[in-house]
Design a protein around this nucleic acid. Structure first.
Length: 447
RNA sequence: UCUCCGGUAGCUCAAUUGGCAGAGCAUUCGGCUGUUAACCGAAAUGUUGUUGGUUCGAGUCCAACCCGGAGAGCCA
C-alpha cells in the first residue's frame, strides 16, 4: 500500500512512489505515451503513462479514460521543468491505475463557451482551473477578513436574515411569508450591529445579504456576502484608518497565500502591491470638482469609453463617476462627506455643515467600484428621531433602534465590505458571477 | 423599467442580393514516445428561440412574444 498524497504535496515526495486520487481534466496521447492532466482539489499536475513502463493491459485502460473520469493513480513523483500544472514542475510517472468511474461525455470542453451555457452548467464549471483559482482566492479573502477582525478585538455576532419591514428602501427587499406576516430577507445587519456594540464594544457580522434590485450588471448579485464591522467610541477619522488597515491586510495576505492562483488567473499583481496605508482621502466636494473638470475636458471611461457626465452638487455619483474618480489613484480611495440627502437616515451630519454627513465610500481601482460603504452613525436620540420623521419612516419600527441612543449613547461607526466585489477586484475577474460558487444573478435561480 | 446587441449541430461560430444547412472543437474508429486548446486520416451530427405574415422560395425581410448578454438607474 503506497502512501496517499495530495497533488499540492507532490514536491515533498520526489523520488517516492505514491498514490493520488482525483479526476482526469484532459488526456492527450501520442502513440505509446499518454499525458493525464489530473486534478484533486489541492492542485493540478500531470501523470505520464508510458506503455513500456505501464504494460499493455494498463495502458489500454489509460486510453479509455475520458474527461472527468475518477481515478486512483500510483507512480513515481519526478521533478520535470516540462510538467505543467499548479504549482507545476512535478509529475507522476504512472505505474498503476485504478479506475473508479469512466465519465460520460463531459459538456465543458477546453474551447470557449457562452455565459448562459456555463451558468447552466455551473455545477460542472466549478471544476475548471479558473474557477478553482477564484474559489481559493475567495476562501483566502474570507479567512483574512475573519483573522484580522478576530485578532483586533472584534466579536463575531450574527445578525438575523429574516427581518421585519424596516421601511428603508423596501423596493429592494425580497418579501417572504413569515407565518402569515410579511417578512424580508436582510439587506444589511447594520442596525443589529449597532445594538451589539453596546453589549460587546466591537463586533462584526458576516453573512449573505439580499437585494431584489433589478440590477443586471457585472457588479451586482441578488444574493451576496457582506462583512460589517461596527465599532463603539469610533468617529469617522478613526473609521477610515480601520478600513484601510483592514483592506490592506486582506489584499497583502491574499497576494502572499494565493500567488499561484493569481498567476493562473493572469492577475497583474503589481497593481495590488500598492495597496498599503495610507489610502488617499478626498471629500465629496473635491470629487465633484474632479468629475466636472474631467467632464469639461471630455475624458472617457471604460467599459464603453463613454465620456464622464458632469454632476451637480448634491447628486449621487453614478458608475462612470466612480470609475473616473478611482482611476485617478493607484490604490483604493476614500470619498467622504457625501450630501446628507443622498445617504441613509442614520448617518451623522457634519456639525458645522449639516448638508453633508460623516459618510465614506471606498472605491476600488480598475473600475471595480464601491467595495466599502460606511459612516459614523447618529448618536443623539433627538436628531435620530427627527431624521426618521424627515424620511417618513414608521417610528414604532425604530423604537428599539432609538433606545440604543437613550442608554449610554456613544459616537460609533461601521462599514460594510462586499465580499464578491473584493474577490473580483483582487482576482482581476470582470464579473461578480464568478466570485461565488452559485451566483444568484437577476433572472436565474439554478443550479 | 429604459437603451443597445444577440439566439443556426452537444459547444463556439459561418452561410454573398431572399436561392441545396456549413466549418472547427467535442464524440466514435485507426495511426504516432514529451503533450501544454497536440497532430494526421475516417465516421456521425439540425424543429435555424416561438408564433404569425410577405414571397415561386425565408437562417436571411416584416410583426409580436420568449430567452440571453452589455450598459443605465440603484447599490456592496
Amino acid at each position: 500500500m503506497t502512501p496517499i498524497i495530495r497533488i499540492i504535496e507532490a514536491k515533498d515526495h520526489v523520488g517516492e512512489v505514491v498514490t493520488v486520487r482525483g479526476w482526469i481534466k484532459r488526456r492527450t496521447g501520442k502513440g505509446k505515451i499518454n499525458f493525464l492532466r489530473v486534478r484533486d482539489g489541492s492542485g493540478i499536475f500531470q501523470a505520464v503513462a508510458f506503455r513500456p513502463n505501464l504494460g499493455d493491459e494498463k495502458f489500454t485502460q489509460v486510453k479509455r479514460l475520458t474527461t472527468e473520469s475518477s481515478v486512483m493513480l500510483t507512480g513515481l513523483i519526478k521533478a520535470d521543468d516540462r510538467a505543467p500544472g499548479v504549482p507545476g514542475g512535478y509529475e507522476m510517472d504512472l505505474q498503476d491505475i485504478e479506475i473508479v468511474q469512466i465519465a460520460d461525455d463531459y459538456p465543458i470542453t477546453p474551447k470557449e463557451h457562452g455565459v448562459e451555457f456555463l451558468l447552466d452548467n455551473r455545477h460542472l464549471w466549478l471544476r475548471s482551473d479558473r474557477q478553482w483559482a477564484i474559489a481559493r482566492v475567495r476562501a483566502t479573502v474570507i479567512r483574512a477578513i475573519r483573522d484580522w477582525l478576530d485578532d483586533h478585538g472584534y466579536l463575531l455576532v450574527d445578525t438575523p436574515i429574516l427581518t421585519p419591514a424596516a421601511g428603508e428602501g423596501t423596493t429592494t427587499l425580497f418579501e417572504i411569508d413569515y407565518h402569515g406576516v410579511p417578512a424580508f430577507l436582510a439587506q444589511t445587519g447594520q442596525l443589529y450591529n449597532e445594538a451589539d456594540i453596546f453589549a460587546f464594544g466591537k463586533v462584526y457580522c458576516f453573512g449573505p445579504t439580499f437585494r431584489a434590485e433589478k440590477s443586471k450588471t457585472r457588479r451586482h448579485l441578488q444574493e451576496f456576502w457582506m462583512v460589517e464591522p461596527e465599532i463603539a467610541f469610533c468617529k469617522l477619522e478613526e473609521l477610515l484608518e480601520i478600513e484601510e488597515q483592514f483592506v490592506s491586510y486582506i489584499v497583502q495576505t491574499t497576494l502572499e497565500r494565493c500567488a499561484d492562483e493569481l498567476k493562473l488567473l493572469g492577475r497583474d499583481v503589481t497593481l495590488l502591491e500598492n495597496v498599503k496605508p495610507p489610502f488617499p482621502r478626498i471629500t465629496y466636494d473635491e470629487a465633484v470638482a474632479m468629475v466636472n473638470e474631467a467632464a469639461a475636458r471630455g475624458v472617457t471611461v471604460p467599459p464603453n469609453d463613454d465620456s464622464v457626465p458632469a454632476i451637480e452638487w448634491g447628486d449621487d455619483f453614478g458608475s462612470p463617476h466612480e470609475t473616473f474618480i478611482a482611476s485617478q489613484f493607484d490604490r483604493p480611495v476614500h470619498v467622504t462627506h457625501y450630501p446628507t440627502r443622498v445617504k441613509a437616515f442614520y448617518m451623522e451630519p457634519e456639525p458645522e455643515r449639516p448638508e453633508v454627513c460623516r459618510s465614506t465610500d471606498m472605491l476600488a481601482p480598475e473600475g471595480y467600484g464601491e467595495i466599502i460603504g460606511g459612516s459614523e452613525r447618529m448618536s443623539d436620540p433627538e436628531l435620530l428621531l427627527a431624521a426618521i420623521e424627515k424620511h417618513k419612516l414608521p417610528q414604532d419600527a425604530y423604537d428599539w433602534y432609538i433606545d440604543l441612543r437613550r442608554y449610554g449613547s456613544v459616537p460609533h461607526s461601521g462599514f460594510g465590505l462586499g465580499v464578491e466585489r473584493a474577490v473580483a477586484w483582487i482576482s482581476g475577474i470582470s464579473h461578480l458571477r464568478e466570485a461565488i460558487a452559485f451566483p444568484r444573478v437577476l433572472g436565474r435561480l439554478t443550479p
